[in-house]
Design a protein around this nucleic acid. Structure first.
Length: 392
DNA sequence: TTAGGGTTAG
């Protein structure tokens, strides 16, 4: 899942560095200018929505800034304040921007991010009356919204009925989204059948098509099942990317074949592909599953050396092992990286690190984590510093 | 990356 708050630092940095980014220049002499920083730091969500609408209505430049929209809508969705999301996004139908399909797609995607499929669908349905051209792009956006909301029946119905009714031709993205929906529902064979259908219609499957199927087949049909898709990629001359390799390595690790996964890692590199954070996550998970934490640490170091940034999967894989072994300094460094990137992680795991740091007499580090947890503007972690009494 | 805006992960 994409992390909506990874943009936060950038948002704040930008607004701090550029005071001229004040977005609401006093339209009325009494109104107070509002900056992006102010929106990010507003803790009252009602106030946030009110200010957000105000800025949006006064600045078309603001309306084109994705990161603050992603951040705010995710934040309101996390707090389940769907009425405020509706309030903000519905107001956007009044701007001239709505005649651009890209803008409507943006609204659909934001509703999707909040899990509000019916609202996303309504934007799509209203596009003609909003004088907004509707093409396969917005059709794909609404299908994707359905997948995100797990409204699979709606997705399949829309896919079957939409193109004829709306005079839309499906493209490779449409098929990829629908194949993803089949895989999500466990119907991987039906997903594979879509490849025939798309080719009959003259749409070439892409590496994304096959990666989606690789994931579904390795998961639903075991390693041998996934291999059917892997071979098809050769037959159809689809060039594999790092993600294809990661999925196969995951398939191997799932079968307990870590050695094969390591061998495939070497093939990946020999093919000139660059391993990414997921590549290392798979290998670390394989090592941890086998109880070989030393080896997992080697892959963790390889990840850092590669220049890739650890993510929340890295964190949940390796931090429990660091804690088991008393490697609290390593755990501490990884926690800090999570805060820096604004990844949402398991609070209990963070607390485990805090406790461990205190026991290892790394009190300053423990205090730093507690402080970081409380000052986080997106998710606050209620971390507790174990008291000295508890130690004695 | 200060505009664009639609696809695949544990």
């Amino acid at each position: 899942m994409s992390n909506p708050c990874s943009h936060l630092r950038k948002i704040l940095k930008t607004s701090a560095a550029a005071p001229t980014s004040t977005l609401l220049q006093s339209a009325k002499p009494t109104s107070i200018p509002i900056s992006v920083k102010e929106l990010v730091e507003e803790s009252n969500l009602e106030e946030l929505a009110k200010k957000f609408k105000q800025v949006a209505s006064n600045s078309s430049k603001f309306r084109n800034r994705h990161n603050i929209y992603d951040f705010t809508i995710s934040r309101l969705a996390l707090a389940k304040r769907y009425n405020l999301i509706e309030d903000i996004l519905e107001s956007h139908k009044n701007f001239d921007d709505i005649t651009r399909e890209g803008f409507a797609i943006r609204l659909i995607s934001l509703y999707a991010r909040a899990g509000m499929f019916d609202h996303a669908r309504k934007v799509f349905d209203e596009m003609p009356e909003l004088k907004c051209p509707r093409t396969v792009k917005s059709f794909n956006a609404v299908l994707k919204a359905g997948v995100e909301a797990k409204r699979f029946e709606d997705v399949f119905r829309l896919f079957r009925e939409g193109p004829a009714t709306l005079s839309i031709s499906c493209d490779v993205l449409t098929y990829n989204i629908v194949i993803h929906a089949f895989c999500e529902t466990g119907s991987v064979d039906e997903g594979l059948m879509m490849v025939d259908e798309m080719m009959e219609k003259g749409v070439n499957p892409s590496v994304v098509t096959f990666n989606t199927l690789l994931d579904g087949f390795y998961r639903e049909k075991g390693f041998e099942g996934g291999e059917i898709i892997w071979s098809m990629m050769d037959e159809l001359n689809v060039v594999r990317n790092t993600r294809s390799y990661n999925l196969k390595m995951q398939g191997m690790v799932n079968e307990g074949e870590l050695r094969n996964a390591v061998a495939l890692f070497e093939v990946l590199e020999s093919e000139g592909l660059k391993p990414d954070v997921s590549t290392f996550n798979v290998l670390m998970k394989g090592c941890c599953d086998q109880g070989n934490v030393e080896e997992a640490k080697k892959w963790y170091n390889a990840l850092l050396e590669s220049g890739a940034m650890p993510n929340s999967i890295t964190f949940s894989t390796i931090v429990p092992k660091f804690c088991d072994r008393g490697d609290f300094d390593l755990a501490f460094e990884l926690c800090k990286k999570m805060f820096k990137r604004q990844f949402v992680v398991d609070e209990a795991l963070l607390q485990l690190v805090v406790n461990g740091l205190v026991k290892a007499s790394l009190t300053e580090e423990a205090e730093e984590l507690v402080k970081l947890g409380k000052s986080n503007s997106y998710v606050q972690y209620d971390l507790v510093l174990p008291s000295d009494n508890a130690e004695n």
